[in-house]
Design a binder for these strands. Structure first.
Lengths: 462, 462
DNA sequence: CCTCTTTTGTACGAACAATTC
DNA sequence: AGAATTGTTCGTACAAAAGAG
């Protein structure tokens, strides 16, 4: 090509040809890793390009990390790197690591997709909604865990824009499938779930000669058993963390309370009966020491130490009892008329404005895959949302309560906070009033009046 | 310069000359904003440079935002921009916004330094230490609030590397100045502080004909008053959130307990006496309803509603009572032998690896400035660490308890958690055992044995 | 340590393409 | 339509550094 002037118009063709040829030769191994490419002058001769142009081409290959430019020496062919590393950030609730064996899951994910690195970290809770939005705005968050209550805060036209629409996963339990939809769009996928259940100390029951709780139990049955257990074992016969928003509202659910229902007098009666029953479960025990639980975790600790014979808890919390040497089993919570319990669901959501949406969805897909869901099923006591995985039958490597599968028989009793016509923030506001009632400082009637005032400011939700 | 070949060696001199000249002419206004610079060819002629070189020079000025290159048109002189906008991230404890009027402070900061934008957000707490380190690693955090307990977790050779050394602020209270030092290096600056204090409902005291609490009060005096107050007003005469790590350890402090002290029997006696007194303050009230406080906030709510006549709280928490119409004042907490209370200090720390360390320090400097500290003094009931600001005398725009300045008289009684020879994590571990004791499920002796075992695994701290 | 060769890196001036006005 | 200006490439020249002997 020397001597002849190259056509200006063919420049791009010539340059692209050189780049493509070199790239091919490198990836095909024609130029081995470590080898030096021909000099710029040579390449220029060969492809009819000026030195400057060849340099630009090499610069591009260097950015692709196919070669490494050594200043004043030449261009060395690099060892091929599978793909560009992507880093995504996964924001989690505090206990998820234990409840879902997150470390193991992420390790498996990374083994499968080495090009994606997942960094998990704790999300600030309380308030979840506003802080998580802030995190998404700052691109600090690609994927996050989100329970049903928190999801409801994203269920408005503007707020739902924060969350990426996701494909549904066939094979998840049907009662979970509609939870995280808004305007027909699935904005989070149910990942793990648990109803609120009763855990009981099996040794205590045996020693006291009591038959174990079953689905026929009413709260009266529980109280009777609790009295005997307390007398025999010197701890709480039954205990639960009353102020928790995942506990006391269950009594409202069991009484069929619905905010804004037609018959106001009937709702009032249900409300008052509920909050009195909540109190009486704690107060009217024959053994009733002072109790200062600050959280559900305190209750679980009490149970793990054998200081409470029965507690309200969840499948999630059973994971903490692995390390304790308490001999326990689980049962449905007692009923009033129709049985009911609260369903807690933890979903996964993707930041709609994530810069790595593809990788984020890859992670969600993996965490919902049969592989990951089976890992959760085998290595934790939480219930995966994939039916096939949850109902897996095999030899356990883990200590598991014998009635672990009990939840399958009580699915019709699963209820949601929104079945009360109340949002999470209503529940929080009502709790403040209930604290006074339970402390004996306010009459039930007066509490109902205050609650009515509080709720009037909002509309009922579905 | 035409015709004559320019010296290769003088190239940089010529290019720098052109750039410097143009920059001067632009900033001096010789080229007005909006005006077009001469063409590349003209400039090349003038400064003895090739077109390509002139282009590179203009590229540089364009990066400096002195000019704007309009493709195929020319270079337009830009309106001068004061300085490059910097964004720094401030991580806060949940209640800081209310306790320090953070919004107002940041607004004032931005007015003073418009080139720095501060974004504040909530830090995940529990565990603070590990999550905050993670945030710093990710460069999500330039400045953060940090209390004394949390600071102690950074007080090791490796951990302290996370925090930038800061200059001390002359004029801060002396008892604060050494708190945040490690190895003679100041790693956080005390910003606001509060001792734990007693708040009391003034109307209740008047109506019951009781004299108001003063520094001579013992816990016996408090109990006597509480009994009368409870009888007269039907709420708690006295209440506090016993399980809080900022409450029950005070009794240990007042009893002079020191972990690892020589006389083990004496320490045991002090420990047992302390935890029994904690319990008796709640249990042995003549009025003692069921109580379920989950946090100090619940106690403050009770007080704000007039359902508790006396509570343990802090200057910080007084900010929440602004909106309540309770008529209250404050006093030192009762004493045992020598008076003692717990000092809580919130400091500010800078991420040592922050990319905007200068701006971060600018913010810290501002938040400790007399201007900001006075704002805190005037607009909140928290105590700023700057003595001049804290002791400012002027007409209040805020409702302030008449004994606000009381803290100045009890400075010698301020103690630290570490005076017990215990770290925050020890306190948490001990609390778990105390819960059983307070619930009446464990004997004091047995608790002491367990605590001894727990503490043996650690060394005493100073 | 110095010298010579090779190669990269950078600048120049000219030519021409592309775009604006 | 055409003048002016920017933007891109080429061939050449030379400086700077690496590496061999």
């Amino acid at each position: 090509m020397t001597g002849k002037k190259p056509q200006r118009s063919t420049f791009h063709k010539r340059l692209d040809h050189m780049i493509a040829t070199l790239r091919n030769q490198i990836v095909s191994g024609n130029y081995a890793p470590g080898e030096m490419l021909p000099s710029i002058a040579e390449l220029g001769e060969q492809y009819g390009l000026s030195k400057n142009s060849v340099r630009k081409g090499l610069e591009l290959l260097s950015e692709e990390e196919l070669i490494m430019k050594l200043p004043k020496v030449g261009a060395r062919v690099l060892h091929p790197v599978p793909e560009r590393q992507i880093k995504i950030k996964l924001g989690c609730y505090k206990n998820i690591a234990k409840e879902a064996k997150l470390d193991a899951l992420l390790q498996a994910f990374h083994a499968k997709y080495p090009q994606v690195e997942v960094q998990s970290f704790l999300l600030p809770y309380d308030p979840y909604h506003t802080t998580v939005k802030e995190f998404m705005d700052n691109d600090w968050l690609d994927v996050m865990t989100m329970n049903y209550s928190d999801f409801k805060l994203f269920s408005t036209d503007t707020e739902s824009e924060y969350l990426e629409e996701l494909d549904s996963f066939p094979g998840t339990y049907k009662f979970l499938s509609k939870l995280f939809t808004y305007n027909e769009r699935l904005l989070a996928v149910p990942w793990i779930f648990s109803p609120v259940i009763l855990a009981y100390n099996q040794s205590h029951f045996t020693q006291s000669g009591l038959t174990e709780p079953n689905s026929s139990w009413t709260w009266e049955d529980l109280k009777a058993a609790a009295a005997k257990l307390a007398a025999d074992h010197g701890g709480f016969g039954f205990y639960y963390h009353m102020p928790s928003s995942n506990r006391w509202p269950i009594m409202l659910l069991q009484n069929g309370f619905v905010n804004g229902a037609e018959n106001a007098e009937a709702e009032k009666a249900k409300f008052i009966a509920s909050i009195e029953e909540c109190r009486d479960l704690i107060v009217n025990q024959s053994y009733s020491p002072l109790h200062f639980s600050e959280s559900n975790a305190d209750v679980e600790e009490l149970f793990a130490r054998g200081k409470a014979s029965m507690i309200l808890c969840t499948y999630y919390s059973l994971n903490k009892m692995q390390s304790a040497d308490v001999d326990y089993d689980i049962a449905p919570i007692p009923r009033r008329d129709t049985p009911a319990t609260l369903l807690l669901t933890t979903g996964l959501a993707v930041n709609a404005r994530s810069r790595h949406k593809h990788a984020a969805k890859l992670l969600v897909d993996f965490l919902l895959s049969e592989e990951a869901q089976l890992m959760i099923r085998k290595q934790t006591l939480s219930i995966p949302s994939l039916e096939r995985a949850a109902e897996w039958k095999g030899v356990d490597e883990l200590h598991r309560p014998s009635r672990f599968h009990m939840y399958r028989e009580i699915i019709p009793t699963f209820k949601l906070m929104t079945d009360l016509g109340l949002h999470h923030r209503d529940i929080i506001a009502i709790r403040r009033e209930l604290m006074l009632f339970w402390a004996g400082m306010e009459e039930a009637e007066a509490v109902w009046e205050r609650v009515q005032q509080l709720l009037e400011l909002r509309n009922p939700v579905n």
